[in-house]
Design a binder for these strands. Structure first.
Length: 253
DNA sequence: AGGCCGATCCTCT
DNA sequence: GAGGATCGGCCTA
């Protein structure tokens, strides 16, 4: 076992989290099944006495090497390595890896222990801790970046807020906070060092996936983004029409 | 020991 | 729409 971040709740932070924790069994099946069911669930991170949370609106499934045919785009394709070993462990754990030297992406492990497979989180709709997310992303009014203005759509529709959450920071836009696999990690404050291996269905965990009863409407199914193998497999799932889904061009069927 | 490259993001044209 | 940043991990020799 290499590093396995087990950050535990030491305050009453977990009690503030919306909804209920998912069960391990939810994740102990094929990523193809888990991915669409994950839409609408809430990723919640208790950090520095505050809760950052976002509703999952876009995901991709990556299949384990036991699958026929095997998925050449998956990190688990060539078997377990120090980097990807979380994928071969028990379901419901965070697999956080670094990419391009500067970013992180977060997946959730699926299948029973011994079998790999995961769901990549590609976009969230901010639900709580939005001002801190803006700071984490270096966006106005906290950052210095001048505000250019490609199509900025203010989010007007919010999910349940955590008590005391001030809402979206003026100048920042929900899309820019969590619309993209690395953007959402940055906004949520997720890193490989701190969160790889974190158990997302442990009530004592600082990082959890929860169900607050929200149900997504129509689900958009498309090929996965940014890969070079198995480019036409329909394993990307998104909430149709949600402004926080990444890339306007990616909204097509 | 060295080379290659990525499940990305941002900026500029 | 294209290219650069930037580095850990994995593969080959």
């Amino acid at each position: 076992m290499e590093e396995s971040a087990q950050v535990k709740v030491n305050s009453g932070a977990a009690e503030q989290l919306p909804g209920r924790l998912l069960s391990r069994g939810f994740f102990e099946v094929s990523p193809e099944e888990v991915a669409p069911r994950l839409l609408g669930k809430v990723l919640a991170h208790a950090v520095d006495g505050e809760v950052l949370a976002g509703r999952i609106v876009e995901v991709e499934a990556y299949l384990g090497p036991h699958h026929q045919p095997p998925d050449p785009a998956a990190h688990s394709y060539r078997g377990a390595t120090p980097r990807n070993q979380v994928l071969f462990g028990p379901a419901g754990h965070a697999y956080v890896y670094s990419i391009y030297g500067r970013y992180f992406c977060m997946n959730i492990s699926c299948e029973v222990e011994g079998r790999a497979g995961c769901v990549l989180l590609r976009a969230l709709e901010p639900v709580a801790g939005v001002e801190q997310m803006a700071r984490n992303r270096g966006l106005p009014p906290y950052g210095r970046r001048p505000v250019p203005s490609p199509q900025r759509v203010k989010i007007t529709r919010w999910g349940p807020r955590v008590r005391g959450d001030p809402g979206l920071a003026a100048g920042a836009v929900a899309r820019e906070l969590t619309s993209g696999p690395s953007r959402l990690c940055q906004a949520m404050g997720l890193t490989r060092a701190a969160h790889n291996g974190c158990d997302l269905v442990d009530p004592a965990s600082l990082l959890q996936v929860r169900d607050d009863g929200y149900s997504v409407g129509e689900v958009l199914v498309t090929p996965r983004i940014g890969i070079h193998e198995a480019i036409d497999w329909p394993l990307r799932f998104a909430q149709r029409g949600n402004e926080c889904v990444s890339g306007a061009r990616n909204q097509r069927e």
